[in-house]
Write a protein that binds this DNA or RNA. Structure first.
Lengths: 219, 219
DNA sequence: TTGCACCTGTAACAAAAATTACCACAATGA
DNA sequence: TCATTGTGGTAATTTTTGTTACAGGTGCAA
C-alpha cells in the first residue's frame, strides 16, 4: 500500500511490474503511458462520461461508487496499486460511457494509457491478457461481495464488515472517518451509523473520537 | 426469445451466429462444441465448482444466482440465447471455481465449448474477443442494476421492477410464479411478497391466481 | 472574537420489513 | 379416499431502519 518512492516523487515502473508483465510490454507501457499525479479527492470518472484512457495505479487507491438518480451513493470497491479498472476495459474497448464514479481516495500516482492500445495488446501480449482477465475476475468478485453484504447482512453486520475491511486496506486500526462518510458509503443515514457505532463502543469493540475510530482487537 | 426450430429439435448455429462471428469461427465452433439439451430446472453450475466448459445458449434461458452460507438466495441476472456467462470466461481462463449458481430456467439447448479454446480464440478471432468483452460488459451492468435495486429501492419498488422485467423477458403478461419463488429471488420472505402483491392487486396493477400473476397494462 | 460549517449524541417517532402463527384451499399421489 | 405438500391470505408483533428535531462541541477563517 505504501509508496516508498515518495521522496523521489516517482514510482519505478520497471520494478513494480517486472513480475506482472513481460519486458517488451513494460517497454511499451513506458513509451505510451502518461504519468499522472492526482491529488486526493479528485473525481477521476463520473457516471455517463466517455472513457478515453485506461488507468493503472502506481500508488494510492481509488474509490469506485455507484450513484442513483436521487444522488444516493454506495461503495462498490477500491482499486489499489498495480491494479486497474475492469469497467474501463470493457467500456473503452467498446466506446461505452462509464457506469460508475471514481474518486481518488488519497494522492494518486497512475499511468494513463490511450484506450487504442488495449485491443492490440490483448492479442500481442499474453501477460496483458492475463492481467485484464484477472482484473475483471477481481472486480466481479468485489461486486458479488457487495451484493452479499447489502442483500444478506443487516446494517450492523455490514458496518462491522466495512470497518474490518478498512482496517485491512489502510493497515491501521485508527480510521479517519466521519459518521457521515460511513453512512454515504453504506447508503444509509448518519443517525443510524452513529447509533450502531455507539452500540459497538459500548460493547468495547471500538473507541469513538472526532472523525476517528479506533478499532479494538476483539472486533 | 422463442425457438422457432423447436419442431426440428435443433437450432441452426450458422444462422443464429452469422452476424455475430466470422465464418471461420463458426466453422470452429461447429467442430469443437458439444451440443447439449438440458431440461428445465437442472443445476448447471454450483458455487465452488470448477468450470471446465463454456456455455453458449441457443434457446431457453439460464438463471444465475448468488447464495450465502445460510442458504439464502438472490437473483443476479439471466443468460439468454446467443449469450454466454462472463463469470465463466474469467473463471475458466484462470481455473478458478465458480462464485455463482446457474439453473436452467426452461428447457435449454446450448453449446458447450472446452475451456482450452477460450485463450486461443481471444487472439485468433476479433469477433470472439468482441463477444467476450460485450458479454462481460453486459454482466457488469446487470450486477450494477442488481446493486441499484437492493441498495436504493424499497421492496415494493423492487417487486414492481422484478415483475416488469419478467414480463419483458418472458414476453407474456401472465407470469407463472409462486409467491415463494419471488421471495427467494428477491431474498425476502413469502409473507412480505404476498402482502405487497395484494396491495398491487387492490391498486389494479395486477391480478392474482394460484401460482400465476396477470400483469395489467398500467403497472 | 465571532460566526459558520462540520461533527457527534440522542430522543421520539414513523415506516418498512421480518417473524410468528394461524387458517383455508388446491393439487398430488398413495 | 385420505394424507401430504405446496400455496396463498392475514393478523399480530417485533425488529430494523429511516426521519425529524435539537443540543452541544470543535476548529477554522473572516
Amino acid at each position: 500500500m505504501l509508496n516508498h518512492d515518495s521522496g523521489q516523487g516517482k514510482v519505478n515502473i520497471k520494478e513494480q511490474f517486472q513480475y506482472l508483465f513481460e519486458p517488451e510490454l513494460i517497454y511499451e507501457i513506458e513509451a505510451k503511458a502518461k504519468h499522472l499525479s492526482i491529488p486526493a479527492g479528485s473525481v477521476i470518472i463520473e457516471i455517463g462520461q466517455l472513457i478515453k484512457q485506461m488507468p493503472i495505479i502506481l500508488s494510492g487507491s481509488i474509490k469506485v461508487t455507484r450513484i442513483d438518480e436521487k444522488g444516493r451513493e454506495i461503495l462498490l470497491y477500491y482499486i489499489n496499486p498495480a491494479e486497474s479498472c475492469a469497467m474501463t476495459f470493457t467500456c473503452c474497448m467498446e466506446h461505452f460511457p462509464s457506469e460508475i464514479k471514481a474518486v481518488a481516495e488519497d494522492d494518486i500516482e497512475m499511468l494513463s494509457l490511450p484506450f487504442t492500445v488495449m485491443d492490440a495488446w490483448m492479442t500481442k501480449y499474453p501477460t496483458w491478457k492475463t492481467f485484464v482477465m484477472k482484473t475483471i475476475r477481481h472486480r466481479f468478485n468485489d461486486l458479488l461481495k457487495t451484493i452479499d453484504h447489502i442483500a444478506f447482512q443487516k446494517l450492523d453486520e455490514r458496518l462491522v464488515s466495512y470497518l474490518k475491511e478498512k482496517v485491512k486496506t489502510t493497515g491501521s486500526t485508527l480510521l479517519n472517518l466521519s459518521h457521515q462518510q460511513i453512512a454515504d458509503e453504506l447508503a444509509t443515514s448518519r443517525e443510524v451509523v452513529s447509533r450502531l457505532l455507539k452500540k459497538l463502543e459500548n460493547d468495547n469493540k471500538l473507541l469513538l473520537y472526532r472523525s476517528q475510530i479506533k478499532i479494538m482487537k476483539d472486533m
